[in-house]
Computed example of a mutant assay.
Amino acid sequence: MSRLIREGQFIDDCWRWLDADEAPAPAPGERLILPSAVWQAHRPGLDAARTGVWLAPDDDLAPLLPWLATIPLIAIRFPVFTDGRGYSLARLLRGRHGYAGELRAVGDVLRDQLYFLQRAGFDSFALRADQPAEEALAAFRDYRWAPFSRG
């Protein structure tokens, strides 16, 4: 079981990630994260409470929108840390579409991005394997946000 950061602490990840070529056949009680296209194709037969969706940076949000209230977890994959499209997807999901479930950053996620990912709306983070886990939580204290003052 992998570990991730959620609500300011490390927790065990209780979700199993499926790639596009895997069929969604969960064991009893198992939670799955499916690629958006697989989720769309199998949605009617899935246990909504135990099925999350993962998005690539170029995936379309439109097919998910009618179902956002029933999706407990959306993971946005960062193929490389320099690809900022995941931030935009997070802002759209949280701000424009009111998504209230868990929003997870996965893939090439670095410690130095955590504060900014949180500001964009992410609330859980699967760090890249080479990132120092013991230092990761400090990333949320690296910056203090203050609105610009006029003066």
Rank of each mutant, 00 (worst) to 15 (best):
D123F: 04
L65M: 09
I5A: 14
A138G: 13
E102L: 05
V80H: 09
R94P: 01
A100M: 06
D83H: 03
A139I: 05
A20G: 13
G29Q: 02
I74M: 01
L103E: 02
I11T: 13
Y115G: 10
D60V: 14
D21C: 02
G52W: 00
D108C: 06
W15H: 08
G84Y: 04
I11M: 12
Q9C: 15
E7D: 15
L64I: 03
F10V: 10
R128N: 07
I11R: 15
G151M: 08
D47F: 12
M1F: 11
Q118H: 13
R144K: 13
V106S: 05
D58L: 10
D83L: 00
P63A: 15
L110R: 13
C14S: 13
A133D: 07
L55V: 08
A138M: 09
M1R: 12
E30P: 05
D142W: 11
R119D: 06
D123I: 11
A62E: 08
L137W: 04
P35A: 06
L89C: 00
T70E: 14
M1C: 09
L117W: 08
A105T: 10
G151L: 11
Q131T: 11
P63H: 13
A126G: 10
I5D: 04
D112C: 11
Y87A: 01
D83G: 04
D21L: 07
R150T: 15
D13V: 14
A37G: 09
R128S: 13
A139F: 11
I76N: 00
Q113D: 08
L127R: 04
C14Q: 13
A62R: 12
L117G: 12
A139W: 07
I74G: 04
A27S: 06
P72R: 05
Y115P: 11
A120H: 10
R104C: 07
P24Q: 00
P24C: 00
R85W: 00
V38N: 05
G86K: 00
G45M: 04
D112E: 10
E22P: 06
P79R: 00
P26H: 00
R77Q: 01
F78Q: 03
R144H: 14
G101P: 01
A62M: 10
R111S: 06
L64M: 04
T82R: 07
I33F: 03
A41R: 09
V109Q: 03
V80P: 03
F10W: 14
F116W: 11
P132Y: 13
P132I: 11
Q40V: 10
Q118A: 13
Q40N: 15
P79T: 05
D13T: 10
G52C: 08
P72H: 06
L114G: 07
G101Y: 03
D59Q: 08
Q9Y: 09
D108W: 03
R96E: 02
F122A: 04
F148A: 13
A49H: 09
P28K: 01
R144L: 14
P24Y: 02
R104S: 05
M1A: 14
W54Q: 09
I5S: 14
R94D: 01
W17K: 04
